[in-house]
């Protein structure tokens, strides 16, 4: 069994009028099954309103499924006694760093989680140091979070999650508000946590470039998983992705256009390096 076992989960948002009568029902997640193995890096893609975030909130028991079950590291999210340990096992990083930082000083913010969990003081400081070093923010430990750039704030949010020693982190569009450098910093931090610390990563994103590092990609549409596979398999289906209001990385799109123009180029191509190699092979200098 994997670290996260989502089994036929359905979740509906019910809209009511002032008198409490049901006005409408939106099925945000519709019978989704998804299994993540420990140490995997998973990306979830889908347009706004496709159900990605609703699904993500099930992974750390912010939402509990109406039908089906979610098992996190052997614990059922429907079991209220397990809620706290589930949230320690599966941390979440959200879009807006300003909504996630509560401390006046960086190290205080990172220490808040372990302190809240009742970790002994000496160990709290060890964890704060270790987490800030992991995301490359240790030199900023005495700073006020408002003095940091977006990417730095988001890395502090990540450190605050790591300090609770999670086995898994769900990133819900962590780079949507960041400049190019901030985006690179956050994605680099997420990949390092996966590679070095072996933490399971679930990345929800609207940037196709960020999904190419994943072991597997899941595409959601109208609350269901409609595509899944390695980045190579998923991004080779350009037209299908576009029909789901998604896209492919720019270099993949370029290779696709070249292929359509009759160039015998390998497909798909996901990185600049691959593209360069192919064009060197094909080109005339």
């Amino acid at each position: 069994m994997g670290i996260i076992d989502i089994n036929k989960v359905t979740y509906e948002y019910i809209r009511r009028d002032e008198d409490g009568n049901v006005e409408g029902i939106t099925t945000a997640v519709n019978g989704v099954s998804l299994n993540v193995k420990a140490g995997e890096f998973i990306a979830i893609l889908g347009h706004n309103g496709s159900g990605k975030s609703t699904l993500a909130k099930h992974i750390n028991a912010l939402l509990v499924p109406e039908e089906g079950s979610v098992i996190v590291d052997g614990m059922d999210t429907a079991d209220e006694d397990k809620t706290l340990s589930i949230r320690q096992t599966a941390g979440m990083v959200f879009q807006n760093p300003d909504n996630q930082i509560i401390g006046q000083i960086v190290e205080e913010d990172v220490g808040f989680g372990p302190e809240n969990m009742g970790v002994p003081t000496k160990e709290i400081w060890e964890r704060v140091e270790e987490s800030l070093r992991t995301v490359g923010m240790y030199e900023y430990r005495k700073k006020s979070p408002n003095k940091l750039s977006g990417g730095q704030k988001q890395r502090v949010s990540i450190a605050s999650v790591i300090a609770m020693h999670p086995k898994c982190i769900v990133f819900d569009e962590p780079t949507a508000m960041l400049d190019p450098k901030g985006r690179r910093e956050v994605i680099r931090a997420a990949r390092a946590l996966n590679d070095v610390e072996n933490i399971t990563i679930i990345l929800i994103t609207h940037y196709m470039e960020e999904a190419i590092y994943a072991d597997r990609i899941f595409v959601m549409e109208e609350g269901s998983v409609v595509m899944q596979g390695t980045p190579e398999t998923v991004f080779s289906q350009v037209d299908m992705l576009k029909s789901y209001r998604l896209d492919v990385p720019e270099v993949t799109e370029l290779a696709w256009e070249l292929k359509k123009a009759g160039v015998p180029i390998k497909f798909p191509i996901l990185t600049r390096e691959e593209l360069k190699e192919e064009l060197i092979r094909l080109g005339k200098r």
Partner: peptide
């Protein structure tokens, strides 16, 4: 366009 999906952007 922050936070919108590719087609939305």
């Amino acid at each position: 366009t922050a936070g919108l999906d590719p087609k939305g952007r």
